[in-house]
Design a protein around this nucleic acid. Structure first.
Lengths: 228, 228
DNA sequence: GCAAAAGTGTTATATCTACACCCATGC
DNA sequence: GCATGGGTGTAGATATAACACTTTTGC
């Protein structure tokens, strides 16, 4: 077995972690996690949590490690690979091939001091090509919401149908018709009724959970009908 | 600017090149390009064309290079990144992170002696994790056919609607209704009539071309109706 | 004139969209 | 009793699916 040439590259993972910030009313605001850069390059700017992949380390493990160590974030509800960015000069210090990941968590949990949640629609200045990576993450998320059950990544184990609808509305950026939305997710069998109810200063709401614990790609499409 | 740690990885690209082999009649058979491995590891098996990425080389350039140099294949009609495979032991010689690409060409052109076109449905024994990469390429292609104009990668500049339908039928593996298929692709504005006609021992067929020269993602979906 | 593929419309069914009111609770 | 969100049905419009015959050419 002829030996391989010497290692020539650095491989990193960068993670776009998306969550929804509760704004009191409304559908919530999509936010993502960024770390302030204390040192050059891009000192003072922000950047996605990222790290060089260690020898013998799975790419996905590296993504989980940087979320835990860099940001103080426990295991996300969902993690999937996005794309790989390898333009030779994307890091001014030298070539780094970056494998990007999309992570979803139900709430913007408290994170390390140097980390912060930023609205996706108004990101801070981001170093490297991270603005492009962020855009590609949101494109993927919007698309996948409509043909999969990936919304589980942005919700707790049980939730009301209104909460589910709010996830769709805030990520897609459009209002949806309540009756049609409910009909569709129930007809698709995306969710299942549970025993519990959510109580509040109003009629109690039925709690649901996702039928499948893992990602399921649907044959059909979920929500297209705009609101009033 | 603090320096980066030394380079620690090898980065490769592996390319799944898909085409359609004309079987006389029928819709054609999806085929992909593989190279016979003369040396260990996996000597005697086949493998996707792949190469280590050079210093300063774009990932996509590396993909084009291995197609040209390794297989003797000119620029494909379509090339897109698939996914990155980085399990530490996927190459027995040492760690190689592989960025995989999907390439489409309209005909299984003659290639180098060590290369061959194999039916996707009956691949030879493939080394490394290339069977998984092949499957992921076909999943991507099938999905993308239904919501984009990616079929341009598998057709010459002009083509008849029957030829377009044959592409869909052979990749999706199901017969489609001729009238409904034509209505749909014309209603979507996917293709445009050209001046030419294709002649043969039968009524001449109108030639069409794709409206857009590059990949366009559709809002709507193309073909779902099964044939008789 | 025969073989071969091109081309074309209609109808029944299913899905989608728009839309407004009553219900159950907490305070 | 009032404010708050939860929950429900229907009708018109649109899209899909199923289906068979005529046309034009080469030989």
């Amino acid at each position: 077995m002829s030996p391989l040439p010497a290692a020539a590259h650095r491989v990193a993972v960068d993670v776009v972690t998306v969550s929804l910030r509760d704004d009191g009313a409304g559908a919530g605001t999509p936010v993502f996690l960024a770390l302030r850069r204390p040192r050059p390059p891009f000192a003072g700017d922000w950047a996605l949590p990222g790290t060089l992949v260690r020898e013998g380390e799975e790419l996905e493990q590296a993504a989980l490690r940087i979320l835990a160590d860099g940001a103080g974030l426990a295991r996300p509800h969902h993690l999937e690979q996005l794309a790989t960015f390898g333009t030779p000069d994307r890091d001014p210090r030298g070539r780094v091939v970056s494998v990007s990941y999309l992570a979803l968590v139900p709430r913007p949990a408290p994170v390390h001091e140097s980390a912060a949640w930023w609205p996706v629609s108004r990101p801070p200045p981001l170093g490297f090509d991270h603005t492009v990576i962020l855009a590609s993450a949101m494109d993927r998320l919007r698309a996948k919401l409509t043909y999969s059950n990936v919304a589980y990544g942005l919700l707790p184990a049980t939730f009301t149908l209104s909460e589910l609808q709010a996830v769709y509305e805030s990520v897609l950026g459009q209002a949806l018709d309540k009756r049609n939305f409910r009909k569709k997710v129930l007809a698709l069998g995306l969710v299942t009724e549970t025993e519990g109810q959510r109580r509040g200063p109003h009629r109690p709401a039925q709690l649901y959970r996702f039928r499948d614990a893992a990602l399921v790609v649907l044959d059909d499409v979920i929500a297209t009908s705009a609101g009033p």
